[in-house]
């Protein structure tokens, strides 16, 4: 099991002291009506927007008295917001200003610069140092506080870890005793930064169906069902691992995929803080694991639209 990642700070830290809210958005210069965000969610879905430039206006609000986190009466703090994108290895500061109770800022995203999921994270930083005092961060550039991260999906399959690579291999040729020729697939998590589903390529018919990109027709329906058959146990395995390996307090994990799956599951299932924090003990208690298993099964069926895939298949066979 992967180790949990928690930042231990030898000074008082204003955790979650910054609230970010999406105020409005423009797609390619036009203000759009409607909402991008579900109530209480911090995920924005732009996957169906087909934009070149998206402009998102956020407001921020400091929800704590930050003078408690400094020995000075008027601490020299600033707010800083950064945008990150793992896939394009991009990290930019989009807001940096002296601290005040509230304010607004814009995030301008050009599709050409990003792929997958974009993260927006705020933090409070010391601008200057002061004399050392126990319990306080007194060095220049120390991070004093933070706020919950927002995510923006601009491509399908970037959330919930569903973009796992599928690789065809001849299982009879592989020198791995865990993989045998009579298996159809195997989840390779030897490198959690890049998990893979290995598919046994012995059946050319099956491979052709899996490679099919059509959205309609008999083969498209068979492909969807085949994908479900492979993905369901694989995602179950990965999700359990993610729930066990992610720090419930910070949502941090050693691997981005685990973090993304943890976040996807807890948000979709409307887990509150208390329930998230109890996950660790749930996983250690056999009687509670059963209930969690049912929830994971429900989540995966919803996520992969399995009832819809089955219905489409039935319609195709019957017509």
């Amino acid at each position: 099991m992967a180790s949990r990642k928690t930042t231990l700070r030898p000074y008082s830290f204003a955790e979650n002291c910054i609230d970010l809210e999406l105020e409005s958005f423009k797609i390619d210069g036009s203000i759009r009506k409607g909402t991008l965000v579900d109530e209480g969610s911090k995920s924005i879905d732009l996957t169906s927007k087909g934009f070149e430039t998206a402009t998102l206006k956020f407001s921020y609000n400091i929800n704590e008295d930050l003078s408690e986190y400094s020995p000075e009466d008027e601490p020299p703090f600033e707010i800083l917001v950064k945008v990150q994108n793992i896939t394009t290895h991009t990290r930019r500061v989009i807001l940096r200003e002296n601290i005040k109770d509230s304010g607004t800022f814009e995030v301008i995203l050009q599709r050409k610069d990003f792929r997958g999921q974009i993260e927006i994270e705020p933090e409070i930083v010391r601008q200057d140092s002061t004399h050392q005092q126990q319990g306080y961060a007194t060095d220049t550039r120390k991070i004093i506080g933070d706020g919950a991260e927002w995510t923006i999906d601009i491509d399908e399959n970037s959330a919930s870890g569903s973009g796992i690579a599928c690789v065809c291999e001849d299982f009879s040729e592989l020198e791995d005793e865990r993989i045998t020729a009579d298996m159809m697939f195997y989840l390779d998590i030897s490198n959690m930064d890049e998990p893979k589903i290995l598919l046994n390529q012995k059946s050319e018919k099956m491979r052709n169906i899996m490679d099919n990109r059509a959205s309609q027709g008999k083969n498209a329906r068979i492909r969807d069902i085949l994908n479900d058959v492979v993905f369901l146990p694989v995602m179950y395995q990965l999700l359990l691992r993610s729930l066990a390996s992610t720090d419930p307090k910070t949502g941090e994990s050693s691997h981005p995929l685990e973090r993304s799956m943890f976040r996807g599951f807890t948000r979709k299932m409307d887990y509150d803080e208390e329930k998230i924090e109890s996950l660790a003990s749930t996983l250690e208690n056999p009687s509670e694991v059963e209930e969690l298993s049912s929830e994971i099964a429900r989540y995966l069926q919803i996520e992969r639209d399995i009832p819809e895939d089955i219905q489409k298949m039935i319609n195709r066979v019957q017509n």
């Binding site: 930042t7 600033e78 800083l80 933090e123």
Partner: peptide, 13 residues
């Protein structure tokens, strides 16, 4: 980098 903000630092820092 877990306690210092590299985003707030200039190249010299």
């Amino acid at each position: 980098t877990s306690t210092y903000s590299i985003d707030a630092m200039n190249e010299k820092e």
